[in-house]
């Protein structure tokens, strides 16, 4: 009987409380956006453009995966964009300037992100600096370091190119799927970047749902004090969550360097807001305790589809910012409505 009673209550309330509704809503929004742009522009739905959208989603999506964990703990990370850039520059230094093998360069990039995240975590959990401020500081630090490091070779700020290592570009722009896909859809090139995004998403979903780290991520976001009183070392686990977020930024850094075939030290500002937007649109609650990887991926697709569509419609970039900003506010407002109802 107890079960009957509980199913009854969950059945009634969880539609609004859980993020299922927002995920559904987000998915419907994605389809509507796609259909509208397809009608407005014949070029929009061409395979080449769809691949463009996929590519654009890949980097932002990987960033957003890391941010999903952090927002689920009721934290925030503003540094993911510039940490991504720093990681890209570090990869560039390792491969093109110090001539290290490509796999080592990739590792250097990813670990740069992990380290930045680790420092964020330590500053937040040990020094008790609020996440907003701590990661804002890291945002500036990473940006500055990326610029400084790019001057090592020539003395001036300039991109580092991967001209001697063509294989590096293949990491994101090659397509291991093409031979598999060619019998079904000839000529469609699904770049590796998209594959990486989906593998990263699967790993993130697994961590969130099945591992100790994921469980504590939700627990800390739901009630941090209770988690502490349950004997969980909250400081350490929170540090781990930020380090994980940083690791995803590091991976995104390697991906963007590979995609552009260069490490662009001035890039990165603004990426953090797009990542946060993707997470919130996907239905992860800013008040913590509720995170969804699938939602985040849908959110990332919404942002990149919209940006791509607006560009194709020749809407100036300045207006694209305005639209993205409005969507973020709308998504957060939906989150608030959802919480009010539960």
């Amino acid at each position: 009987m107890a079960t009957a009673e509980t199913t009854l209550t969950t059945g009634k309330q969880s539609i609004f409380r859980s993020s299922a509704a927002q995920k559904l809503l987000a998915f419907a929004a994605l389809i509507v956006i796609f259909v509208v742009f397809s009608i407005l522009s014949p070029f929009f739905r061409t395979p080449e453009n769809v691949v463009n959208i996929l590519l654009a989603t890949a980097v932002n999506g990987v960033l957003a995966l890391g941010v999903t964990f952090i927002i689920t703990t009721a934290g925030i990370d503003l540094s993911v964009g510039t940490v991504m850039t720093l990681s890209a520059v570090m990869t560039g230094l390792a491969i093109s300037i110090y001539g290290l093998p490509v796999p080592v360069g990739i590792l250097v990039g990813v670990l740069t992100g992990s380290t930045a995240g680790l420092i964020n975590g330590l500053v937040i959990s040990r020094m008790r600096v609020p996440p907003f401020i701590a990661t804002l500081g890291m945002m500036m630090i990473a940006r500055g370091l990326a610029l400084v490091l790019s001057t090592i070779e020539t003395g001036t700020v300039k991109p580092i190119y991967f001209s001697d290592t063509p294989v590096f570009r293949q990491i994101t722009m090659g397509s291991v799927l093409s031979p598999l896909l060619s019998p079904i859809a000839p000529g469609v090139n699904v770049p590796n970047a998209v594959l990486i995004l989906f593998i990263a998403a699967l790993i993130a979903a697994f961590i969130l749902a099945k591992t100790v780290l994921g469980r504590y991520t939700v627990a800390m976001g739901s009630n941090e004090e209770a988690t502490r009183l349950s004997g969980v070392n909250v400081a350490n686990w929170k540090t781990a969550v930020y380090a994980l977020g940083g690791t995803f930024s590091g991976l995104a850094g390697v991906m963007i360097a590979s995609r552009l075939n260069s490490a662009q030290p001035a890039l990165g500002v603004g990426y953090e807001l797009e990542a946060i937007a993707a997470v919130v649109i996907g239905g992860t609650s800013l008040s913590g305790g509720q995170g969804t990887v699938l939602g985040t991926i849908i959110g990332a697709f919404i942002i990149s589809t919209l940006t791509n569509g607006l560009r194709i419609m020749n809407v100036p970039q300045e207006w694209q910012f305005v639209v993205t900003g409005l969507i973020v506010i709308l998504a957060v407002y939906l989150d608030i409505l959802r919480r009010r109802r539960s």
């Binding site: 469980r215 939700v218 627990a219 976001g221 739901s222 009630n223 004090e225 209770a226 988690t227 009183l229 349950s230 305790g289 509720q290």
Partner: peptide, 10 residues
């Protein structure tokens, strides 16, 4: 001191 977003067992 329960975490609302987790199940009873969790």
């Amino acid at each position: 001191n329960l975490m609302n977003h987790l199940t009873l067992a969790q």
